[in-house]
Each structure stands twice: as C-alpha cells, then as structure tokens.
Design a protein around this nucleic acid. Structure first.
Lengths: 108, 108
DNA sequence: CGTGTAAGGAATTCTGACACG
DNA sequence: CGTGTAAGGAATTCTGACACG
C-alpha cells in the first residue's frame, strides 16, 4: 500500500471545468480561495487544480451563499467541523492504541 | 437516483494533466485517440477531457507499447474484452429478468 | 507505425486593479 | 463584502503537416 487511488481527493481539475461543474464564476471560485474556503493545488506553472471533493465543497458554499451566509461565517463553521473531526480522530486513535496493547492478541 | 457520482468516469481532466499523470506526451495521447484506443469528451470550445478511467487505460496502453505491442493489436484486444463483457452482461440481465418474475417477491 | 517538432491561431488562466454597493 | 469587468501577459490546447524510419 502506497499510492491511494482516491479519485475524489486527487487535484486534477482546472478552474474552467470547476466553473462548469459548480455553476460558479471563476471570479467567485478564486475569491473563495482568498477567503480560505478552498485550497487548490498549483501546477508547475501556477494553474489551479481542484479535486472532486473541492467541487462538492464549492457547491455547498454556493448553497450557503444563496442563503445569505457570509464567507466568514462559512469559514468559522468549517473550522468548527474540523475540530470536531479531530476530536473523533483522537478518540479513535486512542482506542486503537489500547487494543494494540490489551485487546486483540497477535502472534509474537 | 439519477446523477451517478462515479468520480472515476467523469471526463474532467485536461490533456496536460493527463500527460503529467501518465508520463505520455500529448502527441502520444492524441495519437492513441486517432487509433481509437481512448475516447475523450470535448469541452464547448473543443478541448479534450479525460476521466480517471481513461488515465488508467492510457497507463495500460503505455505498458503494452513498451512491450512492443502495436496500437492495432491493443485495439483488437480491447474489442475482444468488450465482447466478453457484453456476453456476461447479457447473462446477468437474463438472470435478473428471471428473478424479477419468479424469484424475490415484492409487494404489488 | 509511432512520435517529435515548428507553425499559427484560438482559448485558458493568472494577477492586480477599478467599480459598485 | 462579494462579484463583475477590462488589461496584458504567459501558458495551454488545437489542427494539419513535415520528418524519420
């Protein structure tokens, strides 16, 4: 195991295609990056590359914006969600460590 | 159910990115299309768009070419494979139809 | 046959800025 | 704040062709 396939996360889509896929203008997409809502990668010469996950995120953002939610609030919500996720991850990790020591017995 | 997600099949990757992903030159990628080995979609203005499935196919093609297999033979193999697939599909479909009538009972 | 390359043009993307509100 | 637009330049992509082998 090394190269995770993960088509959803690979950053390979150019901004023009993302624009078609989301219905957002390129201006809007770049602005949401400026507001730290999306983080495309860059090709060697500086062109933005997005993943399918980014496309879905942008669609969520577009929906929030239509409801009148400001980019700042959207960002705060994202940060909160991220912290919850991390909390869960830490718990999971802890459980894993406990199992490794006292749980499942493996050959030695 | 309507919009199948299917990240693997969505044609959204430009030829430059495909070139990076596969290690093939754009010239080679276009030539394999000419030889009917890959079938990218086109954007409104005519730019080629590939899927992750296409990228994997191109990598397979690249490997075959390295072994000295000609594009014509590769195409013949692909056609043979396709026919096998269709055969299996017809069988599956047939089974499904039988089940629909005499197998699993559903409410009516 | 398979691939490189130079050619010319059209479309894409980038950045920084002015505009409106 | 969020988005449109004109501006100028650089990079991308396209097609048809000549080249070599």
């Amino acid at each position: 195991m090394s190269e995770a396939p993960s088509y959803k996360e690979r950053k390979v889509i150019t901004i023009g295609v993302v624009s078609e896929l989301t219905g957002l203008s390129e201006r809007q997409i770049r602005y949401y990056e400026e507001r730290k809502l999306v983080f495309p990668e860059r090709s060697p010469k500086g062109n933005r590359k997005y993943s399918f996950a980014d496309v879905e995120l942008l669609i969520d953002i577009a929906n929030k914006r239509e409801e009148g939610v400001q980019t700042y609030e959207i960002r705060q919500d994202m940060i909160r969600e991220e912290k919850k996720r991390e909390k869960r991850m830490r718990k999971q990790l802890l459980r894993g460590e406990i199992n490794a020591r006292f749980g499942i017995q493996r050959e030695r």
